[in-house]
């Protein structure tokens, strides 16, 4: 014959054990639900074939000083520009403190190849393609690129100087495979 207190203790124990089982079951259900949601969310990220387009080779031998071409990398436009000495000097003359996104032209080009300015042609505001790479297009107030969508002006190092864009045009990862061929990506 058990005393009353012993009985109660048994019940409490039982309650605790049962609570634990309930909580464990709900937790497992929760973890399971999260485990299912993850792939459902992740499926929206860029798929393997989209990521596979990640390198592009460009022949730059035909680009005359002062000229630029527009090609594409991961379906995004890329500007390759052969800067003239005056444009490089202009970019160097700007004090870093005046820049919204301070970077020197040396940081944005490869050593020994300072005349090759290679950037994405994607405005850092909302993603339009700026003008200035093709002949006859406006190059904006600073001689670089001009985005017609909401009026962002970039300088000869493709740095943002005026307008709503927050950042300089992005320099993609690239390498000179030879003097005339660049591999982007």
């Amino acid at each position: 014959m058990a005393s009353e207190s012993e009985l109660n203790a048994g019940i409490e124990d039982g309650v605790r054990r049962r609570d634990f089982i309930n909580i464990a079951a709900v937790s497992f259900a929760g973890v399971g639900a999260v485990a299912v949601v993850l792939p459902l969310v992740n499926q929206m990220n860029p798929s393997a074939d989209v990521l596979a387009l990640s390198t592009t080779e460009i022949d730059i031998s035909a680009i005359q000083p002062g000229q630029a071409i527009k090609t594409s990398w991961r379906k995004q436009p890329v500007f390759v520009r052969n800067l003239v000495a005056k444009e490089i000097a202009e970019a160097k003359a700007v004090p870093l403190g005046d820049l919204r996104d301070p970077e020197t032209i040396d940081q944005r080009t490869k050593a020994g190849k300072e005349n090759w300015l290679i950037t994405l042609g994607v405005c850092t505001h909302l993603g339009c393609v700026p003008l200035g790479a093709a002949e006859g297009e406006s190059r904006g107030d600073f001689g670089g690129y001009f985005c017609p969508c909401h009026g962002s002006h970039y300088d000869t190092a493709a740095r943002i100087r005026k307008g709503p864009a927050p950042k300089n045009l992005v320099v993609p990862p690239y390498e000179f495979t030879s003097d005339t061929v660049v591999t982007i990506g």
Partner: peptide, 30 residues
């Protein structure tokens, strides 16, 4: 391009969020 560009304004995670919405680097088949 412009409207998904709004999301790239979010600090830090902006660009990944935009790529997640687009399923690529620019609007495309996905």
């Amino acid at each position: 391009q412009v409207i998904t560009g709004f999301f790239s304004a979010i600090p830090l995670v902006g660009e990944p969020v935009r790529q997640w919405l687009l399923g690529g680097f620019v609007p495309d088949n996905a």
